[in-house]
Measured scan of single mutants.
Amino acid sequence: LGLPKMEVFQEYYGLPPPPGAIGPFLRLNPGDIVELTKAEAEQNWWEGRNTSTNEIGWFPCNRVKPY
C-alpha cells in the first residue's frame, strides 16, 4: 500500500510561496519522488514528503506528475 508517489518534472524553490499559513514549502528538484501526505484534486497546493531529502512541506501540484 503506502502513500501515492509523484515525480517532480519542474523545480520549486518556494516561489510562489504556499498561500496563507498552511505550512512550509517543500523544495523540489526534477526527478525527485514525492510521497503525497495531503492532496485533494480540487486544490492547487499539496503536501508531501520528498523522498530525496525526507523533508515534508507544501508545493504547487502542477510541478509533479504520476510516478
Rank of each mutant, 00 (worst) to 15 (best):
G31W: 02
G20T: 09
K5L: 13
P30D: 08
N62Q: 10
P4I: 14
L36D: 00
R49F: 05
K65M: 08
S52V: 08
A21P: 08
E11I: 09
G14A: 01
G23A: 06
Q43C: 12
N50P: 00
G20C: 05
P16A: 02
F59H: 02
T37G: 05
L3R: 08
R27M: 08
A39M: 15
L1T: 12
T37P: 04
A39D: 12
G48V: 00
P66N: 12
E11S: 08
P17S: 10
R63K: 11
R49S: 04
P24M: 06
G48L: 01
E55A: 12
P17K: 10
G23C: 08
G48F: 04
A41Q: 12
W46R: 11
G23V: 08
N44H: 14
V8E: 01
E40R: 12
R63A: 12
E11D: 07
E47I: 04
F9L: 07
N54A: 11
N50S: 07
E11K: 10
F9E: 09
P18N: 03
G20H: 12
G57F: 01
N50C: 10
D32K: 02
Y13M: 15
L26G: 02
E47H: 08
L15W: 10
P17Q: 09
M6A: 05
P17N: 08
K65Y: 06
D32A: 04
M6G: 07
P24W: 03
F25L: 08
G23Y: 07
R49A: 08
E35S: 09
A39I: 05
R63E: 00
W58L: 04
L26K: 00
Y13T: 12
V34H: 05
E55V: 07
P19M: 04
Y13E: 11
G31P: 01
G31L: 04
G2W: 11
P16G: 01
R27C: 12
Q10R: 12
V8Y: 00
N62G: 12
L36N: 04
L36P: 13
I33N: 03
P30S: 12
W46K: 04
I56G: 06
E47P: 02
Y67F: 10
M6V: 11
Q10Y: 06
E35M: 08
G48K: 03
L1R: 15
E35K: 06
K65D: 06
Y12E: 01
K38M: 07
M6H: 05
E47M: 15
L28F: 07
E11L: 02
N54Q: 13
R63P: 01
L3F: 13
N62S: 11
L36G: 03
Q43H: 07
P66T: 06
E40I: 06
W46A: 09
P17W: 04
T51H: 11
I33T: 13
S52T: 13
Y67G: 07
K5C: 10
L26H: 00
N50H: 07
N54E: 14
G31Y: 05
I33V: 13
V8A: 10
G20D: 14
Y12W: 00
E11N: 07
Y12V: 01
A21L: 06
E42P: 13
W46Q: 06
E7C: 05
K38D: 07
A21G: 15
N54H: 09
N62I: 07
E7Q: 13
Y67M: 10
N62R: 09
P17M: 09
E55H: 09
G14N: 02
R63L: 10
K38S: 09
V8H: 01
A21N: 06
P17V: 11
A41S: 13
Q10F: 12
P17Y: 08
N50E: 03
D32W: 01
K65W: 05
P4A: 15
C61D: 06
F59G: 01
N44Q: 13
Q43S: 13
A39L: 09
E11M: 04
F59W: 01
E11C: 08
W45R: 02
K5G: 05
V64W: 01
L3S: 07
L26N: 00
T51S: 10
F9G: 07
F9Q: 12
